Amino acid sequence: HEITLHINGRRVKLRFRDEKAAEILKEAAKKGLDEEELKKLAEELWR
């Protein structure tokens, strides 16, 4: 699955395995994680 989040006016595509991962990524984006941090988090969730 993929999700596209808008971060600092940019579109960031993240891959994720399940809905739980999608929710975690959305929450992290709301908390203000930047693009690099979100990509790292997405990679961690993928494993």
Score class of each variant (00 low, 15 high):
H1M: 13
F16P: 02
E27A: 13
E43F: 08
G9T: 02
G9S: 03
A28W: 10
K31G: 11
A22K: 15
E27Y: 07
K13L: 08
D18S: 12
I3N: 01
E23P: 03
V12P: 00
R15M: 07
A28P: 00
G32R: 04
D18K: 02
W46E: 03
K39I: 14
L5R: 01
K30M: 13
I7W: 03
I7A: 05
L14N: 00
R15A: 03
L33C: 07
E37P: 05
G32Y: 05
E44A: 12
N8K: 09
D18R: 02
A28N: 06
E35H: 09
K13P: 04
E2R: 05
E43W: 10
R17T: 05
E36P: 10
E19Q: 15
K31P: 01
D34W: 06
D18P: 01
E43D: 12
K20W: 12
T4N: 06
R47A: 14
L25P: 00
G9D: 04
A21Q: 07
R10F: 06
A21L: 03
I3W: 02
E27K: 09
K13N: 08
R10I: 09
R17Q: 06
G9H: 03
L45Y: 03
H6C: 15
L33E: 06
F16C: 09
K13I: 15
H1E: 08
K40S: 12
N8Q: 08
H1R: 10
E36R: 12
E37H: 13
V12K: 01
D34N: 14
I24W: 05
R15K: 11
K20Q: 11
K26N: 06
D34I: 09
F16W: 05
V12N: 00
L41M: 10
K20I: 09
H6S: 10
A21R: 02
E19I: 09
L5D: 00
H1C: 09
K40I: 12
E19A: 14
N8R: 08
K30V: 11
L33H: 08
R47W: 13
R10L: 08
W46C: 03
R17V: 07
K26L: 14
G9C: 06
K39V: 14
E43Y: 09
D34Q: 13
A22S: 07
E43Q: 08
A28V: 04
K39W: 12
T4H: 10
K20N: 10
R47Q: 12
A29M: 08
I24E: 07
R15T: 04
E43R: 08
L38E: 00
A29K: 03
R10C: 06
R11C: 08
K30Q: 12
N8H: 06
R11P: 15
D18V: 04
A29Q: 06
E19G: 09
L41T: 02
R47P: 04
W46Y: 06
N8M: 06
K39G: 07
L14C: 03
L38R: 00
E37L: 10
D34V: 09
V12Q: 02
R10T: 08
E23D: 11
A22F: 10
N8P: 02
G32W: 04
E36S: 12
I3A: 02
R10E: 05
R15H: 05
K20A: 13
A29E: 04
W46H: 02
I3K: 01
I3Y: 03
G9Y: 00
A21E: 05
R11W: 15
G32S: 05
T4E: 14
E19V: 09
G9K: 03
E43V: 06
L33P: 02
H1D: 09
E23Y: 08
K13H: 11
E36M: 13
H6W: 13
E23G: 11
V12W: 01
H6V: 15
A42I: 05
E44P: 00
E35M: 09
K30S: 13
K20P: 08
I3D: 01
D34F: 07
E44R: 10
K30N: 13
I24V: 11
I24M: 10
R47G: 10
E35Y: 11
N8A: 08
E23Q: 12
